[in-house]
Design a protein around this nucleic acid. Sequence first.
DNA 1: TTGATTAGGAAACAATCATTCCCTATTATC
DNA 2: GATAATAGGGAATGATTGTTTCCTAATCAA
Lengths: 184, 184
Amino acid sequence: MDTALDGAVRVFCERGYHATSIGDLTAAMRLATGSVYKAFRDKHAVFLAAFERYAAVRREQTRSAAARGANGREQLCNVLLSYVEHSQGSEGRRGCIVVGSAVELSALDPVIRARVTAQLKSNESFIAGLIREGQADGSIPHHVEADDTARLMICLTQGLRVVGKARLPLDGERLVGVAMKLLA
Amino acid sequence: MDTALDGAVRVFCERGYHATSIGDLTAAMRLATGSVYKAFRDKHAVFLAAFERYAAVRREQTRSAAARGANGREQLCNVLLSYVEHSQGSEGRRGCIVVGSAVELSALDPVIRARVTAQLKSNESFIAGLIREGQADGSIPHHVEADDTARLMICLTQGLRVVGKARLPLDGERLVGVAMKLLA
DNA sequence: TTGATTAGGAAACAATCATTCCCTATTATC
DNA sequence: GATAATAGGGAATGATTGTTTCCTAATCAA
C-alpha cells in the first residue's frame, strides 16, 4: 500500500491535484480504478493520504540531515543544504506536494489549507528549535531573533521549491553560504 | 479589454489554471463564452495574456517601490517590503500567477515554463542591479556577492507568496529587518 | 475440499469540461 | 437610409472527468 501511495505522491507532485486524472493515478499506483476506490473514498482522500506520506518521508529526511551536524549552526546548515538538494534535479523538477497544495488548493479547500499550515508551522518550529539550540551551544549569537529568522527561512525553503520546479539551477554551497549570514 | 484581462488575472491567481473553468472565466471577465473565444484562441491563450498583464502590472509596482529609496540599499529594502505587503492580506490569499504557473504548469508546459523562468531571471537581475548600485553608492559592502544574494532573494520572494497564500501572517518590518542581514 | 469473504480489475455511468456554431445587436460605410 | 461587417451572447456538442457497479480471482476458515 505504501508503494502505491509513493506512486500517488510522485504524480501529484509533478502534475498537481487537478491535472492528475484517475487514469494517471491508477497508472502511477499500479492499481485499477475500482481498487483505488475500494481503498479510498475519492480522489481527495487519495491526495490527503499522499500528502501525509510525503510529509512523513520528508520529515525523516530533514531530521536525519540535521542529525549529521555537531552543533545547532551545523545542523541548521545541513537542513538548508538538504532543502536545496531536494529542490534540484529530477526531484526538484517533480516538486513539493506541500508547496503545490498551498498554491493550488489552499485558497478554496480549508481541509488542505489546515494541513499545509500545520506542516509549515511544524517545520518553522523545528528550525527555530535548531537556532535556540545553536544559541545554547554557542554556535549562534544570542541576538539572533529565532522566530523571525525561522519564518524567513521557511519562506526561503518554500521559494527554493518554486524556483527549483521552474528548473533554475541552484548552487547549494553558495546559496547556503549566503543564507548563513542570517545567523550572524 | 484590459479590464476583462484583470478579471482573468484575478480568477487565475486564486484558482490556478486547471481549477478555473470557462464559466469562472466568463463570470470574472464579464464576457460570454463566445466572446472569450472570439478574443482568444483557447483557454491557454487567455492564461498567457493574463500572465503577461500580471507581470506588467507587478513590474511597475516593484519599480515604483524601488524608486522611493535614496540609495541601493534603501531601494532593495523597499522592494522586499513591497513583496511582503503584496504577499499578505487579500492579495496574498489570492496569490501570484507566476508562482502558480511555476508550481502547477511548468513541469509539463514548456511555453509557460519559458515565461516563468524569463520572469524570475528578470526579477533576479533587477535585484542584482540594485545590489551593485548600492555597492557603487556605498550603502552596500563590496564583499556581498551580488548574483548569489539576488538568487537567494528571488527564492525568498517566491516563498513569501507561497506562505502568504497559506495565510500565515507576515510581519514586513521584522522579516525585512532580518533579510537585510544578507547585505552585511 | 468446500464455502465464504475480500482484494482487484474493467466496463458503464452521469456530470462537467473546453470548444464550436449560430443568432442578434451595434457600428461603420457607401 | 440601406447594407455590410463585426462584436457579443447563449445554446448545442463532443470529449473527458470522477465515480459506481458488477464481475473475476485469490485467500482464509472450517
